[in-house]
Simulated scan of single mutants.
Amino acid sequence: MLQQELEFRGINLKHLGMYFEELGGKQITYQFPYIFKSDDDWYGEIVGEEELSITSTFKVNRVYIRFYASDDLTLQQLIKNYRVKTRRIGG
C-alpha cells in the first residue's frame, strides 16, 4: 500500500474528517489516529493535531494527515480531490 503524509494548517479538525466522508470514506475510529476507509482502494488517517505559534498572539492548528491507496493513480487522485476540499481562497 502506498502512502503520503501532508500537513494542513488553520482548518478545523472536524472539517478535515468531514472531507474524507464527502469523498466516500467512513469513519472507523473516534480518537487519534482518526481513520476513514472507503469502499474503494484507499483510506486516510488524521494522525495528530498541534498548535503552531506564528507570532506571540497569532496561533493556528497544524494537522497531519496520511493518505493510503493501493496504487499511485488512486493515491494522487485522492490527494487531489482532498486538496480541492481544503483550498482556501483569500480576497
Rank of each mutant, 00 (worst) to 15 (best):
I89D: 06
W42N: 08
L75C: 09
L75S: 07
R87F: 11
D41G: 10
Y82E: 08
F67M: 03
T86L: 06
I65Y: 02
D71T: 08
R9I: 11
K59H: 03
H15Q: 15
L78G: 08
Q77P: 07
E5Y: 03
G24A: 14
G17L: 02
P33L: 04
K59V: 03
I79D: 02
D40T: 12
L23R: 11
V63Y: 00
F67R: 01
G91S: 11
G90P: 00
L73I: 13
E5G: 06
E50M: 05
G44C: 13
R66W: 01
Y64E: 11
T86W: 01
K26M: 08
T86R: 01
G44L: 07
M1R: 12
E49A: 05
E49N: 06
D71A: 09
R62D: 02
L78N: 10
V60C: 06
G24L: 13
L73A: 13
R9Y: 13
Q76D: 13
F32R: 02
T29F: 00
F58A: 05
L73G: 09
V63D: 00
Q31M: 00
E22P: 00
P33E: 01
Y19E: 06
A69Y: 02
E22H: 10
V60P: 01
L52M: 10
G44S: 14
K80Y: 14
R9T: 12
R87A: 14
F36R: 04
T57S: 05
L73E: 15
V63C: 05
R66Y: 01
L73N: 14
L2T: 05
K26F: 06
G24C: 13
F20Y: 07
F36T: 03
M18C: 08
Q27L: 10
Y30V: 00
I11S: 02
Q27K: 15
V47F: 00
I46D: 03
L23E: 11
H15N: 14
R88W: 06
Y68G: 04
T86G: 01
R9N: 13
K37S: 14
K37Q: 15
F58H: 07
I11V: 14
L75Y: 07
Y64G: 05
K37Y: 12
Q27G: 05
L13Q: 13
Q27R: 15
Y68A: 07
S53D: 07
M18L: 14
F58W: 06
Y82D: 09
L78T: 09
G90T: 05
S38G: 14
Q77R: 15
L73M: 10
G10A: 08
M1S: 15
I54G: 00
T74I: 15
Y34R: 01
Y64V: 06
Y19A: 09
S38N: 14
K85R: 15
G44K: 04
F36E: 03
N12R: 09
G91Q: 10
Y30R: 01
K14D: 06
Q31N: 03
T55H: 04
I35E: 02
